[in-house]
């Protein structure tokens, strides 16, 4: 693996500075409900603050609102009320394009089902977020190659997702999530679809990225592997964070 620090340092988008002790991601009284015959409070008055470099794990039974919370934190969805702030930016002040820009520059997503674009190669998938920027094609290519190297897939650059294993696909997805040096990486059950050996590799990769680059992570996962590395483990139930534990670190 190449010098990952140099790779992440080469990010085109400087992250907004945050003062010492200032949390990079904050949620204030977040609410999100759905109406399906009756009202479902998917996220119920959640407030939290996450510091830069923190590794947060969220656990909770199925349907308790974990995915919904992540989508609100990542600006994929709008809350009914409450506010999210990422590196000082209030989501409620951003219009749709502003939110898209925020997702592009400040947020990295990793999903349970990898969600790579099936007709693009690994390299093209990783390049995708970079191609929104003004970077030259060559620079994009170089950086995407470095990112793939970093997740140990330098040799698979020209492979299509279907030609790769689940673990490999997920690593491509992680490389993509990191492409724009986001302020925070949000991962929704990133190992939910992987076998146990790959699960551990994945957890190790997250840990390495967190430790070496001080990358902030919010990971929804029931994996022991993740809980061991976490700074904090948030327990959710019925849309609320009902317990906060210290993680294995």
């Amino acid at each position: 693996m190449t010098d990952a620090r140099r790779v992440l340092g080469a990010a085109p988008n400087g992250q907004p500075q945050t003062g010492p002790g200032e949390p990079i991601l904050r949620a204030v009284n977040l609410n999100k409900s759905y109406f399906l015959g009756e009202v479902i409070y998917a996220v119920d008055d959640v407030s939290l603050a996450i510091d830069k470099g923190e590794f947060i794990v969220i656990v909770g039974p199925s349907g308790c609102g974990k995915t919904t919370l992540l989508s609100l934190l990542g600006g994929l969805d709008r809350p009914n009320s409450g506010e999210v702030l990422l590196a000082g930016q209030r989501y409620s002040r951003l219009n749709e394009n502003g939110l898209a820009q925020l997702r592009r520059n400040q947020v990295g997503f990793v999903f349970q089902f990898f969600n790579l674009i099936s007709h693009l190669t690994a390299l093209e998938n990783v390049s995708l977020p970079l191609r929104f920027t003004r970077m030259s094609r060559r620079a994009v290519r170089e950086r995407a190659e470095q990112l793939l190297d970093m997740v140990g897939l330098g040799q698979r650059a020209s492979h299509l997702p279907l030609q790769m294993s689940g673990g490999e696909q997920q690593r491509v997805a992680i490389a993509r999530a990191l492409a724009n040096s986001p302020a925070v990486v949000l991962a929704d059950e990133p190992t939910g679809n992987l076998d146990s050996k790959t699960k551990n590799e994945m957890a190790d990769l997250f840990l390495r990225l967190n430790e070496e680059f001080n990358q902030t992570f919010v990971v929804v996962s029931h994996d022991e592997g993740f809980a061991r590395f976490a700074h904090r483990v948030l327990h959710m139930r019925d849309g609320k964070i009902d317990k906060v534990e210290a993680g294995g670190r």
Binding site: A100, R103, F109, P129
Partner: peptide, 15 residues
């Protein structure tokens, strides 16, 4: 649909 969802998640605008 799915591909478009992915694109939007990584920051593509509606336009």
């Amino acid at each position: 649909r799915k591909e478009i969802g992915i694109l939007k998640a990584i920051g593509a605008r509606g336009t």
